[in-house]
């Protein structure tokens, strides 16, 4: 079997794209990558980096609440970024919260991508009834914004596990909600490119030599349509973190006893007018920095992976 009928493999493309060179050329990208790296490390090692455990109510003292950042009047050295309304150390809470946010966002987006890519490939490659059914499901899906899906799943979980506490179920509810509300974009993108790709010569050739359909889809079509997905992935990671924050604002997000970055922002939101700015500012800046950096990386990745742009 000749490989000439296949499209160039992913690795050769990355090698040919001089991805490293393009990375080193862009200062913005390097800064973004640095920020992402720092934040990811902070999140991953939060139990070791954070001075306190904000998730353990026994170590949080209400009497410590609303202390401003250390450099302000009334600030205390043990709380660098100040404390929130329950007396949690904000610096620790941000580290822990970011971890929760990234886990929720990452798992949610991964779920969305796996559903979307699978369905998109099937729809685009098989066409016909399968395509119609999948795309109509996508239509239904688009009707339900993440908020509605979260409410639905929250309700179902509550109905099924009556005694389960919100603290135990919230993460799953959020991951599934994000997964279910974001997959359509992947499916549509993949389906669109697959529709084009499947009529190309190399796919025809693969079909002629009698390769089974799943193999053609995975080995030949997928590598050629996945480019845009990487870009959507990065943007969606940011979006997922923000969706989680919004759901917290609406009261279906993570509980205030285990705050994510979004929960911290919606808590701080209440103190925006009262002068206790740090409660919303620091988590807000962290969130914005995270999403911005991830998106910038996504932009760079898109351009770098697109051979026509060089």
């Amino acid at each position: 079997m000749s490989t000439s009928s296949e499209a160039p493999s992913r690795w050769s493309r990355i090698r040919d794209s001089d991805i490293l060179a393009s990375f080193l050329k862009s200062k913005v990208t390097m800064v973004a990558a640095f920020v992402v790296l720092i934040l990811f490390i902070g999140a991953a090692f939060s139990p070791w980096l954070a001075p306190t455990n904000p998730f353990d109510p026994a170590t949080v003292f209400l009497a410590d609440s609303m202390i401003p950042p250390a450099w302000q009047d009334g600030g205390e050295a043990r709380f660098i970024l100040g404390t929130d309304d329950q007396g949690r150390d904000l610096y620790s809470a941000i580290l822990y919260g970011m971890r929760v946010s990234l886990i929720v966002g990452g798992l949610g987006v991964a779920l969305a991508a796996s559903i979307g890519i699978t369905l998109g490939l099937l729809a685009g490659y098989l066409g016909g009834r399968v395509d119609a059914v999948i795309m109509r499901i996508a239509d239904v899906q688009l009707t339900f914004p993440a908020i509605l899906i979260a409410l639905l799943i929250d309700g179902v979980v509550r109905g099924l596990f009556k005694s389960a506490s919100r603290e135990d179920t919230a993460i799953y509810v959020l991951v599934i909600s994000i997964g279910l509300s974001f997959w359509v974009q992947y499916a549509r993108t993949i389906r669109g490119s697959t529709l084009v790709e499947r009529n190309k010569d190399y796919v025809m050739a693969a079909r002629l030599v009698g390769l089974p359909a799943p193999l053609i889809m995975l080995r030949h079509v997928l590598p050629n349509v996945i480019g845009p997905v990487l870009v959507i992935l990065t943007i969606n990671l940011g979006l997922a973190v923000i969706t989680e924050a919004t759901l917290s604002f609406l009261g279906v997000g993570l509980p205030a006893t285990q705050p994510s970055l979004g929960t911290l922002i919606s808590i701080g939101n209440r103190y925006l007018f009262s002068g206790d700015w740090w409660i919303v500012a620091f988590p807000g800046i962290t969130l914005a920095a995270l999403v911005l950096a991830v998106n910038l990386l996504g932009d760079w990745l898109r351009d770098a992976l697109n051979p026509r742009l060089r």
């Binding site: 943007i235 923000i242 919606s266 939101n269 919303v280 969130l287 932009d299």
Partner: peptide, 24 residues
């Protein structure tokens, strides 16, 4: 580049926070 970065702020902060900041 400024345009690109600024536009990203639109998707880097939750809508509710942007709204409240604008009101403020």
């Amino acid at each position: 580049k400024v345009f690109q970065a600024v536009s990203l702020i639109g998707i880097s902060l939750p809508t509710f926070l942007i709204g409240i900041l604008l009101i403020y």
